[in-house]
Design a protein around this nucleic acid. Sequence first.
DNA 1: CGTATCGTTGAAATATATCAATCGCAGTGG
DNA 2: CCACTGCGATTGATATATTTCAACGATACG
Lengths: 236, 236
Amino acid sequence: MSAQLASNAIMFDIRTAKRSIGIAPTQTTVTSIDDGVEAMEMMGARMTFDRDAEIFGESEAADFVYRVVSGAVRTYKLLSDGRRQIGDFHLAGDLFGLEAGAEHRLSAEAICKTEVMVFRRANLFSLAARTPAVGRALWAETARELERAQTHLMLLGRKSACERVASFLSALGEREPKASEIALPMSRQDMADYLGLTIETVSRTFTQLQSDGVISLSGCRRVHVKNRGALARLSA
Amino acid sequence: MSAQLASNAIMFDIRTAKRSIGIAPTQTTVTSIDDGVEAMEMMGARMTFDRDAEIFGESEAADFVYRVVSGAVRTYKLLSDGRRQIGDFHLAGDLFGLEAGAEHRLSAEAICKTEVMVFRRANLFSLAARTPAVGRALWAETARELERAQTHLMLLGRKSACERVASFLSALGEREPKASEIALPMSRQDMADYLGLTIETVSRTFTQLQSDGVISLSGCRRVHVKNRGALARLSA
DNA sequence: CGTATCGTTGAAATATATCAATCGCAGTGG
DNA sequence: CCACTGCGATTGATATATTTCAACGATACG
């Protein structure tokens, strides 16, 4: 694994630790020394992965849960002949690799140099067993993933190439509602494998959206959304 | 809602009630009178829905969880112009309509005359708050749904029409590993909207699989799998 | 037994894929 | 600093899988 284990995190406040795995800190309070110990165990180690480095593989033991600190991650499945379907992209702040079962059901790779925090699943589980709020937060996270997958199903099953690209850009744009400039950490191939298209079709669609005045490209990894409304309408 | 509320269930054993919502009965035991009361509340009312009757709609309050007793259910999303993507089919024994959040994110309809058991979500939640095993079972159920969705994404994004139909039949066939006869409760349109195809393509693929000797059709709702291996191979 | 709905088949249209060539930028070494 | 190199992106021409449009057939239902 082409990753380097960085120094352990230095935070000590349990609320910070819990926020760092996506659990609202107001929902739990420090009530005992055990919780303090738990907090230390919960705090993730930081790791960095190079571009295209594997973070975990499909059907590997899911002993860790990850949170993107910086960079971007793709999760995907492969068919035996190499066809790839990307399930989701995970950007800064996103959790990934959380499984209810013992094994990962998708593989995960860093899209670019990526820093993540790593949490022991066993610690989350034991914490959840004692703190109902934590258990519910884990469930809610899986439910969020499911919701995204269901939206993705609609995109793949029933939308045209143009609608897929527009939906994708719209969704990315909504992560920064103020900014109209979208940075694309992923390649055209990654987008194609996420959208169920080929690179050529993705590329052609970008240039068409550009000539229609909906977006403008400044280098292939930087999109300026000139007409957010049009993009939303094209998303169907 | 074209459904009739049947007489309340008559079971009283809490283990039966818990098994009926998909929680391994061995993991919990009756320890108090409260549990007994809980069991009564848990036990679902039986309801029947006519063909094409709506069970719940997208973004409706998710106050109930359902289990198919007999018949079949489709869950789906619609685009504003009427395009439909079916998320999943639920057959006898399957749970559906379970949400971590307050609202349903898909609509559900009976495919044929269908009997379901209905459970109050609030009861499940309060039980889960006290019984970690129940909470984990709910999470596991959502995780199962997510896993199915991820497989479905692969199908829609990267498989050919023939591979989609073969995958679909294979998966249905695996529900009855012994029997080689598959009953299709759903129409060609339902299959098309599940597989991201048109009815014509589904129909043509069926006839092609038949002329290739992989399946044989006895009436359009009954498929005899003549060559399970070939079907699996065609599923990619 | 008639009628409506669903499924099948055919022919033509089209969106997207495939194959192939060129472009352009980022990194590298002279 | 500039040319060289290589990979990713774009563009073009062509192929093709699937859709669309249309007619016909079968099946279930009243």
